[in-house]
Each structure stands twice: as C-alpha cells, then as structure tokens.
C-alpha cells in the first residue's frame, strides 16, 4: 500500500519488527536476571536500582548512546532495537523477581514434596504462577515500545514515525495523523495478542473466575 509517497507496508513492517523483537528479546534476558534477583539479595541490590536508573534515561539519549557503547553505525535500526530491549529488561527484571517472590511458599513446599526439583520447580511451578504478572509487565513494555519506536525517526530510522517527521517538514497533518493512528492501532493489536497469550497459558485463572 502506498500513501503520501511512502510504502506504508514497509513502514508498518519496520515498526512492528522494531517494537516486537526487542520486547521479546528483553523478556528472554529479564527472566534469568529476575530469577537471579529473586534468589540472591546482593544481585537484587545491584539489579533493581540499575534497571531503575536505565529506565530513567530518555529514549532519544539512549538511542544516541548505543552507537558509542557498541560501535554500531549511528543510522542503524539496531540502536533503536537495543534501546527498547534495555527498557524492556529494566522494566521486567523487577517484575520477574517480584512475581517469583510472590509464589506462596506453601505451593513451593508442596511441589518439592511431590518431587519437583530445581529446574522442574522453576519451569513447572514457579514460572507458570508468575505468568499473570509477567503478562502485565510485557503489555506495558510492548505498548510503550510501539510509541518509542517513532522516536527513531528523529535520527533517520524508518518506522511510522517517519510519517510524523516528514509530515511535520511538509506541513501535512493527514500524514502525521496516519502515523499516530497506525502506531496506536498496532500497539493495541499486539496488546490484545499478549493478553490472549497470557490467558491461554493460565487456564486455571479462567476456571476460577468462571469465564
């Protein structure tokens, strides 16, 4: 589909890839870090304040830091991807740790009593019980990722944000509105996807509420 002289499909694909991949990678990185923060108090003392500080850094600043730290080209989409991965990790490490903390000891004890051990206990009992909290964190990270991807347009990284910057330069409101609406719709679509995924992973929560 073309509009305003742009290949909209390509902008949408770039937007989705730049938002979704970092959020999923961030989740994968946050799981072991969160588990570590759950198990070790010194690790938590470092990880939780560090992720708080990283989450505080404005996105445009972080996008500028990444090429200096990693040596990537300044115009590379990787800078936006890594920025969003950092935010996701920063947001989720604490969620994972607190979700694991919140698993009642009675359940852990019962699982150990029926024969669950380390990895089985984590993946079979503790993580599944943490899914609702994880889903909530993932949804926040995902919604803000879809909005933050557009910031990359300020340093030349294509996404629906390109319609906003170029629409501004051309004084073309419809183009800007298209970018905003597209970004919001994509954010909501993926939000619904994560919600459905979280629900399908936790059938017991539905049984309890009778839905």
């Amino acid at each position: 589909m073309r509009a305003f002289g742009y290949d909209i499909d390509q902008l949408v694909i770039a937007h989705v890839l730049l938002a979704v991949v970092p959020v999923l990678v961030g989740l994968l990185v946050a799981l072991p870090l969160g588990w570590w923060a759950h198990r070790s108090r010194p690790a938590r003392r470092v990880l939780v304040p560090l992720s708080g500080a990283l989450y505080t850094v404005p996105s445009l600043a972080l996008i500028v830091f990444i090429p200096v730290v990693l040596g990537t080209p300044i115009l590379s989409p990787v800078n936006v991807g890594i920025t969003l991965t950092v935010y996701t990790v920063a947001l989720l490490v604490r969620s994972v740790a607190e979700a694991l903390d919140a698993v009642p000891d009675t359940i852990t004890t019962a699982a150990i009593a029926v024969g669950y051990r380390s990895a089985g206990l984590l993946f079979g009992v503790q993580l599944p019980l943490a899914v609702p909290v994880l889903t909530a964190g993932l949804r926040v990270a995902s919604v803000s990722a879809f909005s933050l991807v557009t910031v990359g347009a300020l340093v030349g990284i294509p996404s629906l944000g390109t319609l906003m910057t170029d629409g501004f330069q051309q004084d073309y409101t419809a183009m800007v509105v298209t970018g905003i609406v597209g970004s919001v719709v994509l954010a909501f679509l993926f939000d619904a996807l994560w919600l459905a995924l979280g629900r399908s992973l936790t059938p017991w929560t539905r049984a309890r509420t009778g839905v």
């Binding site: 919604v143 879809f146 909005s147 933050l148 557009t150 910031v151 347009a153 300020l154 629906l160 944000g161 906003m164 910057t165 629409g167 501004f168 800007v176 970018g179 905003i180 970004s183 919001v184 954010a187 909501f188 939000d191």
Partner: peptide, 9 residues
C-alpha cells in the same frame, strides 16, 4: 499508547 513524537508534531 499515543506516540509522543506524533502528539508533539
């Protein structure tokens, strides 16, 4: 979900 850049512009 509103993109900050879009709202500003």
């Amino acid at each position: 979900a509103l993109p900050e850049l879009g709202v500003l512009v």
